[in-house]
């Protein structure tokens, strides 16, 4: 039977997948962001404030937090639209660290039932009690996470198979060429970044309510670089790529207890070797294309 530990691992995979998808969205438009954890964090804080302090309904708070993260993503993208490559990566890193450090200074507390509740700088933000108050079991919450994840994947899937997805990939491969063909680069970069911010925001808000406690330190650069790595391990050819990366890291490694303590030595080495042979991940564009051909061949017969 599914025990609580296993459920926690599974729900973790779901929530981290969302920030991995977020990093993936930026990757396919040709940039590397070290800063998606900022949007994860912004939404975690904003969404939790909305449910805990303002008493908003869960879904509204989820949309609110993610929307805020999306706006922030678009804003940062608009500011950094002139730079690319390492300059962009470092700018996103700087922004994310600014957000994390600002949260260390951020205090906003209400007195509820004789207790001071709300974010309080480095002490973090505890008592995000929505699941307890509404008597939601871990299983139910996990299902809820996967419902959101499923909707997100479906949405991204639709985008990828539309003109918009094609434009995103054009930007990633040759922005100069794309602009020559009449694509308004700035508009689409900002749009992609807003979507990415929103996706990370969904994960962040769900994360906060799952753990009931958040602190700025959670949203450090390690989270961002990991989510970036997931897309690259899993593959940049399809939105399922980053999810494979997350499953491999969290699912696979958490389950092998024998290598505890040597986990990163093994995993780090494996990952480096794998990237030599598959520099764009397991499900890269070529393999996705081949699978598709194979599948189409089968269905036609």
């Amino acid at each position: 039977m599914l025990n609580d530990y296993l459920l926690t691992v599974i729900s973790n995979i779901g929530m981290i997948s969302m920030i991995a998808i977020s990093a993936y969205l930026i990757l396919i438009t040709g940039e590397i962001s070290f800063g998606q954890q900022a949007y994860f964090g912004i939404s975690a804080y904003a969404g939790s404030i909305a449910t805990t302090l303002w008493g908003w309904p869960f879904w509204m708070a989820l949309i609110f937090g993610s929307f805020l993260a999306g706006v922030a993503g678009g804003l940062i993208s608009a500011l950094t639209v002139r730079i690319n490559g390492i300059y962009y990566s470092i700018a996103t890193l700087a922004f994310a660290e600014m957000v994390r450090l600002s949260l260390l200074k951020f205090s906003y507390q209400f007195e509820i039932d004789g207790e001071w509740i709300g974010p309080n700088g480095s002490e973090g933000f505890g008592e995000i009690r929505w699941i307890f108050e509404n008597d939601i079991s871990i299983l139910e919450y996990t299902l809820l996470i996967y419902l959101v994840l499923f909707l997100l994947i479906a949405f991204i899937y639709l985008i990828e198979h539309s003109k918009l997805g094609m434009i995103f990939r054009m930007l990633g491969q040759d922005p100069l060429l794309a602009s020559v063909q009449g694509v308004k680069i700035i508009r689409y970069k900002v749009l992609a970044a807003s979507l990415a911010g929103f996706a990370a925001g969904l994960g962040g808000m769900l994360y906060a309510h799952s753990f009931t406690y958040i602190e700025p330190q959670i949203f450090n650069v390690m989270l961002g670089v990991h989510s970036l790595a997931y897309g690259l391990i899993g593959g940049l050819g399809t939105v399922l790529g980053p999810i494979i990366g997350v499953v491999l890291d969290i699912g696979f490694l958490e389950s092998i207890r024998g290598i505890q303590g040597y986990r990163m030595i093994v995993f780090g080495g494996l990952m480096a070797v794998m990237l030599i042979f598959m520099p764009r991940g397991i499900l890269d564009e070529k393999r996705v294309h081949r699978f598709k051909k194979f599948w189409e061949g089968k269905t036609h017969v």
């Binding site: 970036l228 690259l232 995993f267 080495g269 480096a272 990237l275 520099p279």
Partner: peptide, 22 residues
């Protein structure tokens, strides 16, 4: 790592970072 994929180098250098720390 092939020269065309600069991200792969970066991510693998990150993987090695984790390894070195451990």
């Amino acid at each position: 790592v092939s020269k065309e994929t600069t991200i792969a180098s970066m991510v693998s250098s990150f993987a090695i970072w984790m390894q070195l720390e451990e």
